[in-house]
Simulated assay, not measured.
Amino acid sequence: MKKTNTLTRLTIEKFRNVAPTTLEFRPGINVLLGRNATGKTTLLRLLSMLLDVPGEPLQDEPLSASWRVMGRILDFEQTTSRVRVEAPALPLEPGGTPERGSLPGLQYSGALRFEQDGDEVLRAELLPTELVLHHAGSSTREARHSSSPPITSIIASLWRNQGEASLELTSKLLHSRIRTSGRLDEGLDRFNETNRLNPEPDRHTARLSNLKLFFKRAGEEVSHEELSHGQKRLLAFFAHVDASPDLVISDELANGLHHEWISVCLDEIGERQAILTSQNPLLLDFLRFGGIEEVRRTFILCERMGSAANPRLIWRNLSEDEAGSFFLAYRTGLQRVSDILRTQGLE
């Protein structure tokens, strides 16, 4: 059995000013490349939101997207759509006529398909007000609350309709989701929040604040307030990785870190999947590749096209030609990864 759940694909049909695209990810380290204002942080936030990490502000934005996860037990594909709709405004007084105009809102719909060894285990249709489950040759339909996470709605429906008979399946569904604590910011926000997440299904989230941490060694005691910027970043990263058993999402990982600490961070990630940004070439030089396809999936280029008044964000994997050219240069061992990317205009 695989040790982690892995995000393999993200398709964006409609989101802000992003051109429709399909992005592929590899197990292990993935890196977003691009200049400032090309949407790298936005893409990390979008991933966090789609994976149901609480607190992401993108929850209230229209979009249409799908993604696929290769799981430890089940594989699944999920689609989601949030469309802006106009609802009639309510009257100000009982019995009165509605006010002119309307109230904007989001209408949610989506679908999930779970598979084991290529065979469908369960399929769910999440309509604006209904949940339809297809399982074991039968279908059930019931009302749903659009504010509930899809997996929560599905498990609640299984329990209502099948009771204890659904325990094995609901356990598989819970363990198929990607466990991540979302995006680690590029500064010290996470460190200052002292926010500790426990993503396991049977554990609660603990939010702690106003903590005082002390670090001791022979003859010396240091408060967390006396740590350097880099030390605080490192401490926050360790806590972040510990709370992200499957997927580590980090913005500007190398910010403020000595090159030896970057190596320690990558070692800490271990067998987890990671999606990172870094304008520091030191991180890139730690990457290793076994073939062209691995290169193609590792890097995602973020570009900004169009005019200043009407910009268009382009997010894409490397092309086969770009990945092949990179791997040929990489295999000679004469240039560092960051130098190859710079030489070939892929930064």
Results as ranks from 00 to 15, higher is better:
Met1Leu: 14
Asn5Pro: 05
Arg9Ser: 09
Lys14Ala: 09
Arg16Cys: 11
Pro20Asn: 03
Arg26Ala: 12
Val31Cys: 03
Arg35Ser: 10
Thr41Trp: 06
Leu47His: 01
Leu51Trp: 05
Asp52Ile: 01
Val53Thr: 05
Pro57Lys: 04
Gln59His: 11
Asp60Lys: 09
Arg72Glu: 06
Glu77Cys: 01
Thr80Ala: 03
Pro88Phe: 03
Pro88Glu: 01
Glu93Arg: 10
Pro94Val: 02
Gly96Phe: 03
Gly96Ser: 07
Ser102Glu: 01
Gly105Asn: 07
Leu112Trp: 00
Asp119Cys: 11
Glu120Ala: 14
Arg123Leu: 07
Ala124Pro: 13
Leu126Arg: 04
Pro128Arg: 02
Thr129Asp: 14
Leu131Arg: 12
Leu133His: 06
His134Ala: 00
His135Met: 07
Ser138Trp: 10
Ser148Gly: 02
Pro149Met: 02
Thr152Arg: 14
Ser153Arg: 03
Ile154Asn: 00
Arg160Met: 03
Ser166Ile: 07
Ile178Leu: 02
Thr180Val: 05
Ser181Pro: 05
Asn192Cys: 11
Asn192Gly: 12
Arg203Pro: 02
His204Met: 15
Lys216Arg: 09
Ser223Trp: 00
Arg233Trp: 06
Phe238Glu: 02
Ala243Lys: 06
Ala243Gly: 14
Asp246Ser: 05
Ser250Lys: 02
Asp251Gln: 04
Glu252Gly: 11
Glu252Asp: 12
Ala254Tyr: 00
Gly256Cys: 07
Leu257Thr: 14
His259Met: 08
Ser263Phe: 13
Ser263Leu: 13
Val264Gly: 04
Asp267Asn: 11
Glu268Lys: 14
Glu271Phe: 15
Glu271Cys: 08
Gln279Arg: 15
Leu282Ser: 15
Asp285Asn: 15
Gly290Ser: 10
Arg297Asn: 03
Leu301His: 05
Cys302Asn: 04
Met305Cys: 12
Ala308Met: 12
Ala309Ser: 14
Asn317Arg: 08
Leu318Trp: 02
Asp321Arg: 15
Gly324Met: 13
Phe327Thr: 06
Leu328Cys: 10
Gly333Met: 09
Leu334Cys: 08
Ser338Gly: 06
Glu347Cys: 08
Glu347Thr: 13
